[in-house]
Nucleic acid binder design. Structure first.
Lengths: 295, 295
DNA sequence: AGACAAACAGAACGTCTGTACCAATGTCAA
DNA sequence: TTGACATTGGTACAGACGTTCTGTTTGTCT
């Protein structure tokens, strides 16, 4: 009834965490239990929760008041809202997929696309050790030049990466360049350079050949494909497996995009302040040119 | 108090779904609301839920009894347990993110990127109604020409979409084209055409202007941005909000890529057998040319 | 048309909830 | 030791809760 409300459960949890020290023993006990079982708050009564926490009901009301809430109801409402908001993102995926796929043929396509995309992305993030990306990052930063090779659907990805990386460092080029074969761009590549190459089933001959000749010259290879057994993996120092499953006639670039975004982030982070400054001046220049509208 | 209990919310939901047909009107209304908002059951009172569902409180009691539960309390408890059990999966990700982010500064960047990317993707899929994409698909298929407009990081996305859509149908063009301004490509666009436009905060002036002039000519607009209040949304017939959050200095295209993949899939599915045949012949030709290696 | 059953709304009941109040206890300074 | 103060436990109460009962409405079958 007061002017409370309008604070999310995350914020409340954070406040409780930092306030733990200055709470009285019983209050701390209650707060501790709430912090460890936040969801239980949303589905319990004062007495029920009090018993679970080994505390008197009063204490919970006092805990709520401590955080300037009008009472336990307001306190609980915050957690309830949190439970409801989770629905959107963390809802039971299987059930959601089922319900969507019932909406006709396109619903099924939608559900399958969703499932594939999310799985590809999750697998990439959970099965890839950031330390390996870090190693790759260092190799790129220490190289003389870095080539990014992708054909077909992967060409835009390669190009975009080169474009963005170019803001932070020099010597990043996308291949193939202007109608030529990938190998042409690698004419003077040697062991001081890095080649980032990607191709997915069915594997493209040109990429394979480019990787082969580059490797023969000692160029460091960073290979990206959908299988550790892909033909560009064996000669690569750095290997990343990215899922591209999709019900469509092409392969999905969702997880691939995520990989390059992470790689880019690592590059900027490791490149030091000079890269950050370079990016900022880039943005400032654009702002000054009136490229953006002020909302 | 009875022997109820011990059935999961999934099972109850399934039972309700299949029993929907044999329920009386009010009971069906109540059951329908519960099926669409199962989580709300767990955090509401009879009266509160009844009001949300547009039903009288005792109807909910009858609904519970219909499924051989001792009362609304038992009914609600099932959903409450469901809410609590979700904790595990929910916490899994939270815990994983935490453990990763402890691995130094880059680990934190990795974890944040992962969290953002997965959230963006999940939100897109869960908050976008495939029926709306279907409407957009039909508009595109019925159009004379379709333009896909994206600048900066979005240009490769637009280009790639036009490239792939070109396999299935005619008249899809990416803008801007070859160093010209986006508006230039729209010189002869009118109400028979569709313009797919995207820009994200900070919004790009050229995109805004292109959308404005195209809309003035009656061209159908499909807008994609990170907010429903984005300046290209108001004149659009078809609007899609795509999250682009990321800890990086650019915006994330992960969810955006997913959107276009789905749109493409819908296009092919609705375009009929001719599109499929066209794609297949495309692949066959490539195969014959020896573009791919046989593993 | 009337009889009947099913479905629903309204009011009333006992129970449990959240909270305010006060007593009991512990803590510290004078 | 005493008193002031903060913290905690116990109790009582008004209101909201889930539920039941009863009357009304609705639809169906003779």
């Amino acid at each position: 009834m007061d002017g409370d409300l309008k604070i999310g459960s995350e914020e409340l949890v954070a406040r409780m965490q930092s306030a733990l020290g200055e709470l009285s023993p019983e209050l701390r006990k209650a707060a501790g239990y709430v912090l460890e079982n936040p969801r239980e708050v949303g589905v319990s009564s004062v007495r029920g929760l009090a018993e679970s926490a080994g505390v008197k009901p009063n204490t919970l009301v006092r805990l709520a008041n401590f955080f300037e809430l009008s009472g336990f109801d307001a306190f609980r409402d915050i957690f309830r809202e949190g439970l409801l908001r989770e629905e959107e993102t963390y809802q039971d995926r299987a059930r959601w997929l089922q319900s969507v796929s019932r909406k006709g043929q396109l619903g099924q396509l939608f559900a399958e696309s969703a499932d594939n995309a999310m799985t590809n992305l999750e697998r990439f993030f959970t099965e890839t050790d950031p330390a390996r990306i870090e190693l790759a990052t260092d190799a790129i930063l220490q190289s003389r030049r870095t080539f990014v090779l992708g054909v077909g659907m992967n060409y835009p990805v390669a190009h975009n990466f080169a474009y963005l990386a170019g803001m932070a460092m020099d010597g990043v080029t996308a291949l193939p360049h202007g109608g030529t074969l990938p190998v042409d761009g690698l004419a003077r590549a040697d062991e001081r350079d890095v080649l980032i190459a990607m191709t997915f089933r069915p594997y493209r001959r040109e990429v394979l050949e480019a990787v082969g000749t580059a490797a023969a010259r000692g160029t460091q290879i960073l290979s990206i494909s959908d299988s550790p057994a892909a033909p560009i993996m064996d000669v690569a120092e750095h290997r990343f497996v990215i899922g591209t499953d999709t019900p469509q006639f092409f392969h999905s670039t969702v997880a691939l995009a995520a990989f390059f975004e992470v790689l880019l982030g690592f590059l900027v982070a490791r490149a030091g302040p000079r890269a950050v400054a370079s990016i900022e001046s880039f943005h400032d220049r654009r702002q000054a040119l009136g490229i953006y509208v002020d909302e």
